[in-house]
Design a protein around this nucleic acid. Structure first.
Ligand SMILES: [Zn+2]
Ligand SMILES: [Zn+2]
Ligand SMILES: [Zn+2]
Ligand SMILES: [Zn+2]
Lengths: 170, 170
DNA sequence: CCGATAATGTTATACAATCACATAGAGGGT
DNA sequence: ACCCTCTATGTGATTGTATAACATTATCGG
């Protein structure tokens, strides 16, 4: 299960963006990191939760709760919505997964471990989702918030547009 | 129907924020502006659409599609979801109304006329929603997008937190 | 008036999320 | 081992959000 059992043709394995990358190790790393963190912090990465995380990391795009639920059913887990939503709640709360509000869908975190406020680029043609960093509270929005006395706790930043692949095709 | 028929106790009528403001004229101005723009651009502000916009400006907070639909029914319009959603689609497409993705709800634009990319502050206690300006494409997100060749068309920026009123109460 | 287009009305259905309650596991103290 | 407690799952039912599909009506330019 160590990630050095096989040559890793890294090119830009850090950029999980639209570029191709070593997906195999990408998946393993993500799951290993999650297990590591759960062990360290006393969180319980149960079978359902692990399966959901694995699906999302594997797919590498945003999945709706019911798509996830369908797969859980196939894998022999419970088939009612709360099964999926509870697993997702756990994963989102602990930062392993992010919810894409624009799509009402979920995507595996691309920067697991580090606490961060994510931003997303969503292609409106192919629904690809890529995670980037953001710091909206540092810009105009933060200034506006301080001006009126609003205390920001969390931000949703999602950019909709056309991904490089879809641009080329057109 | 002109806005000078009555003394306007303006203090900070520009800031539609959490502060109090001259709501009467606020409503009239918004509707007048909308009618003006529709006339100018050949858009059709039909009765349903106008009613929905009026409700949202009047309420001055985010309303769900079904809350809107209920009111439409009371006013004698169609009572099925598409009636509300189609009116909302029109209003959102033309910038009179914004959708708050985090709440699955809709709010009247606070800066009608000017094309702008809005940002929102959402109080998680009282659900108050205030519109501010944003320029996320100019910051870290814009840089990331250019780096990978993603073409941003639209951004969703929503800050969740506690509004000044709710802070005082606690 | 006629035909094309846009807008509305209505039915049905898909997708998203939560509530309520029963059951099963894990972990700690005895 | 046992019992107790807390957490996690399983399940049925329900509510909320959104769209598909199709018929009807209104509007506008010939
Ligand atoms: Zn992340
Ligand atoms: Zn694309
Ligand atoms: Zn606006
Ligand atoms: Zn508040």
């Amino acid at each position: 299960m160590t990630s050095d059992t096989r040559p890793v043709p890294v090119e830009n394995s850090a950029l999980i963006g639209f570029q191709k990358h070593d997906h195999e190790s990408c998946v393993e790393t993500a799951l290993a990191t999650a297990e590591e963190r759960c062990r360290a912090e006393g969180l319980r990465l149960t079978p359902v939760r692990r399966k959901v995380l694995e699906m999302l990391v594997q797919e590498h795009r945003a999945l709706g709760a019911y798509a996830i639920l369908d797969r859980l059913r196939e894998e022999g887990f419970g088939s009612q919505p709360p099964v999926a939503y509870r697993a997702l709640d756990f994963l989102v709360e602990n930062g392993f997964v992010h919810k894409i509000e624009r799509l009402n869908a979920f995507v595996a975190c691309a920067h697991p471990g580090a606490t961060h406020s994510p931003a997303f680029m969503i292609c409106r043609k192919c629904d690809a989702v890529v995670e980037a960093q953001s710091a909206p509270a540092k810009g105009a929005l933060g200034a506006a918030a301080r001006a009126v006395g609003f205390e920001i706790e969390r931000t949703v930043v999602e950019a909709e547009g056309i991904c490089p692949d879809c641009t080329k095709k057109a």
